[in-house]
């Protein structure tokens, strides 16, 4: 691989890992709220969480620019108090990727939460366990496969993020030029076909590696949850 490709690959991985890592606790919290709680504004929260799935990514990028830019309400506050700049930095790229991937993560975790037999949690309460102990010891292990699925989906989505990223943090080599943006750049360059093919192959290899890894972990998790030996997938 050329230094440019390695740079884009490393940047993509960094952005995706941070995007998924930081949004995971929030993803579990929001999934839990949506799956288990009734509260005013639940429909609104549900809608906002799903928005990135249905509006054009460029529109999300624009909104991030407005809110998180140096002059934006949140962006200005972040800069004044913590000295954090998101715009035109890899951190901003991670935010854009995290926001775009968030609905996929929440959906996967929410589905697994809804599949958990709440009667097991009730039983744990009657055995003297506090709600916190029930969540950590019973609920969380039981939704581990769902969390894994959400993480993999969000990771893949983050790796492929393009529209919101380029709108929010632009296309700066070494800072915000992830694999999709690098691919876009070489395609804009005359004679860049070979480089484009190589970047496409790298993207495919990365995605396959993520899928295989998650499949292996999922089988181990299922085996651990049910006590059955891992068998061939159905």
């Amino acid at each position: 691989m050329t230094p440019v490709e390695i740079e884009a690959l490393r940047l993509s991985l960094k952005v995706a890992i941070w995007a998924v890592g930081v949004s995971l606790p929030f993803g579990v919290l929001v999934a839990w709220l949506l799956a288990r709680k009734e509260f005013p504004g639940k429909l609104l929260l549900d809608g906002i969480v799903h928005l990135p799935l249905v509006v054009p990514p460029v529109a999300v990028g624009y909104l991030l620019l407005v809110v998180l830019g140096r002059n934006g309400a949140v962006g200005g506050w972040l800069y004044d108090w913590f000295g954090i700049t998101l715009i035109f930095t890899w951190k901003g790229a991670a935010v854009a990727a995290g926001v775009m991937a968030f609905p996929l993560m929440v959906r996967a975790i929410r589905l697994s939460l809804e599949a958990v037999d709440e009667r097991l949690e009730t039983a744990a309460r009657t055995l003297g366990a506090s709600p916190r102990r029930v969540f950590l010891g019973i609920t969380l292990p039981l939704i581990a496969p769902g969390i894994l699925a959400g993480v993999v989906l969000a990771f893949a989505r983050s790796l492929g993020e393009f529209g919101a990223t380029i709108t929010f943090v632009s296309n700066i080599p070494g800072e915000t030029r992830t694999l999709p943006l690098a691919l876009y750049s070489v395609m804009q360059t005359p004679g860049g076909e070979d480089a484009a093919v190589r970047l496409v192959l790298i993207s495919i290899a990365l995605a396959l590696a993520a899928i295989f890894a998650s499949e292996i972990i999922a089988r181990r998790l299922t085996a651990r949850l049910t006590g059955k030996k891992p068998g061939p997938s159905k």
Binding site: R125, T126, L127, S130, L142, L225, G227
Partner: peptide
Amino acid sequence: LAPERRRLGYVFQEDRLFPHFS
């Protein structure tokens, strides 16, 4: 009182065993 503070053991119609524990 919350269920966990009532000190009442409960055997349900279904076994409700935790599948991920021995």
